[in-house]
Design a protein around this nucleic acid. Structure first.
Lengths: 330, 330
DNA sequence: AAAATTTACTAAATCGTTTTACTAAATCGT
DNA sequence: ACGATTTAGTAAAACGATTTAGTAAATTTT
């Protein structure tokens, strides 16, 4: 029942010319190959009439390139990645590339499988925010020789990376409270082994030690009740400032504080590492450190384009500055 | 410089067997074709040793199917679509399909181009939330004969559709305020021609007429100052309830109300058509009508799987019920 | 008018798989 | 021991494009 697609050969036969001629003309190289204007017109007409759609696979198979970049994201429902994804796709598109987006859900096994899937599709390059340590990815990346750009989360030393300096930014963050806090609570959620999260935590540790501020850290339970107890417990131990280690954790934390009837910023100050589009609409508005997501996206694509031209340039780590969004919670 | 990939033939030559044999074995059909255990093992070993990755294009070209579904979304940075996207991708993956996601940004031209791109890639089917009226898409969809499922936003009458009954849900929404309002302000933003938005508006119009409630509608300016003036003006005209026509508009509206120092729900009540993960964290928490996004996603995939099996079944419109999230703003 | 060049094409190889049709050798049934 | 069947494969066509090498006819050059 499947109506097969119209092929080059169908057009060629309908007009009594060769496939080569049709191919030349439809690729805009008719003049170059001395195809007469009349015949060119005829071919274009016939192609339209038959609703010819070139078979991308046949083309890629022959040409060995796909003009497609794979984009491997950890969590597409996080607005940070959603925005990054949107910009990367737009930018790549403007350069004649398509984007194959996959979402790993921070699941290492799925990440491996999806990366293999992308490589099978002969993508020309890959932009990736790895789940975690990239140890598991190395063998996969060695199966292929396509350029890889790590975005937001670093890969190995000599691979391209575009993102922020999490340690530095975190350590600077401590100085941003209006009044120097006595005891800071850093909060994470889910997997603490994610490199960006542990770097942020390390930055906070270093800076708090230097400035004589006490620092505690909890990893929020996924059980609501337990999470409430965790936070309540820390607050009763004289915590006067909170730094959630990313935007989603910040939202969860704010929900918990609300339920505990803790007032921000009166009872406790809060600065979120990572911004969220809704922070400015909340009461109080949430002070946050904003990662330059559009720059990260744009520069990632730029790096990729360079790599695609000459693959032997050494890896470059590009660290961008964050912006402090001064609002009402600190 | 480009190191070409290892092919079936490389393995075949290395072992002195035919390509066919290698293909049979690597596809797990070695027994079926009476390939000896010893040879099978040898082939698997060699494949691993040479890090063989099958060329997906060659395979698809030969087999005529790609096990890939195209997913065309209007705005991936809207959490509703992001979530839908995530679930659709997961569900399709569990059924052995990959997902090719594209983001149209509600741009009709881009939508057409991207759809063509997908069709060129011989996707087996397409799940789509069209920008707008699908008139422009019809010719494109006729270029191909792959199954199409419209998700969240309807396509034409006899195509599959999975979503909600926007008119009905909107008209029911008016009865949800704790106290019957006198004058409701419906707010949209950007393109009012999006079908779901105009259906919601129509539903509100019908219901307000029946229940003797006055209804006004504005389309929010993208100029912040102008938008503030628009809302202020309506409020001074005795509006006592607001219904933003989707979640993003709700966020924008809340921002404006905050800047105008209008208290919700004391000065004005608000119910959002469309939920957002942050609504429960806000002060006051935002009452909203929640679309069953996971059901929409799951059923969309289900429909697609049925279509892929037998393409000649008549189109089905599947309308799901929304859930009223009773919170503090109404 | 013969040689050289240009014009307007075409035939066939190629990319890397899958799959059909075929074959030689081994084993089986009687 | 003879034909029949099974075993263990192989060769070659096919998918649909691109591209190289070639060619006959027309035109230009000398």
């Amino acid at each position: 029942m499947k109506a097969k697609r119209v092929s080059l050969d169908d057009i060629a036969k309908a007009l009594g010319v060769s496939k080569a001629t049709v191919s030349f003309v439809l690729n805009g190289r008719g003049d170059e190959f001395n195809i007469s204007k009349k015949k060119q017109e005829l071919i274009h007409e016939k192609a339209k009439e038959l609703q010819y759609v070139p078979n991308f696979f046949a083309k890629s198979l022959r040409q060995g390139e796909t003009k497609t970049i794979g984009l491997v994201l950890a969590d597409i429902s996080n607005p940070f990645y959603a925005e990054m994804c949107k910009i990367i796709q737009e930018t790549l598109y403007s350069k004649g590339y398509n984007t194959f987006i996959v979402n790993t859900n921070d699941d290492k096994e799925l990440e491996k499988t999806l990366m293999r899937e992308l490589i099978q599709r002969s993508i020309d390059g890959m932009i990736i925010s790895p789940c975690n340590t990239i140890d598991a990815l190395i063998p996969i990346l060695h199966e292929t020789h396509i350029p890889v750009v790590f975005s937001d989360r670093p890969g190995d030393e000599n691979a391209d990376f575009v993102g922020i300096d999490n340690m530095k930014e975190a350590s600077l963050l401590i100085g941003k409270f209006k009044n120097k806090p006595k005891k800071i609570l850093a909060i994470s959620q889910h997997d603490t082994s994610i490199q960006t999260i542990s770097e942020r935590l390390q930055g906070l540790k270093d800076a708090s030690k230097k400035s004589g501020i006490e620092l505690v850290h909890i990893n929020l339970s996924s059980e609501r009740k337990e999470a409430l107890a965790q936070v309540k417990n820390e607050l009763s131990n004289h915590v006067d400032a909170i730094i959630p280690l990313n935007n989603m954790v910040a939202l969860a934390t704010l929900g918990i504080l609300q339920e505990l009837k803790i007032n921000v910023p009166n009872d406790v100050k809060l600065i979120s590492f990572d911004d969220h589009e809704v922070f400015s609409f909340m009461t109080p508005s949430v002070t946050a450190l904003r990662q330059p997501v559009n720059k990260i996206a744009a520069i990632s694509v730029e790096r990729m384009m360079e790599r695609l031209k000459e693959s032997q340039v050494p890896g470059k780590h590009q660290l961008l500055e964050c912006e402090f969004m001064e609002r009402g919670s600190h």
